[in-house]
Amino acid sequence: MSCPKSKLISAYLDKEMGLGEKTALESHVQGCAQCEAALKDMQSMQAAFANAERHQAPYGFATRVTARTAALEKKRSPWSVPLFIRFAEAAALVIVITIGILAGTVMTNERSAVTTTNIASSLSLDLFDAAPPGSLGGAYLAMTEVKNEK
């Protein structure tokens, strides 16, 4: 069974305890073989950690990160446009479509009016000569018309 005070050794090593607690633990360790051994073990472990190598990022690391963020940015660029610009774009599109529809309707109305007139006049018999022009019948009808006018 381990000594309950051994749990305090970690905080003692890290200097994360008050002066009173520290002094009390130090005097306890002097009389407790178990805590003395635990403290020694932890101190040698701490020394091993202190000797552990510190590694620096490999050459070109930042460049590779930047390339990945640039790729990410490119991928999501259609959505990276600020919200108000996206709304403005949508509004502009709606306005253009509405103008197009209105202009189209007006032009269609005008054209249909003209077409109706043309159809009515094309149906009139006035368009047709009673006899083909330059024919004998045509000459006769012309003489009759002159005679009637007189």
């Binding site: 590694h55 620096q56 990022a57 490999p58």
Partner: peptide, 21 residues
Amino acid sequence: TSAFGEIVLRYQDKIYNLCRH
């Protein structure tokens, strides 16, 4: 976005060291 590059340069060793261990 270049500001982020500066952040990477500043902290890359610390973060790499943690990941390495």
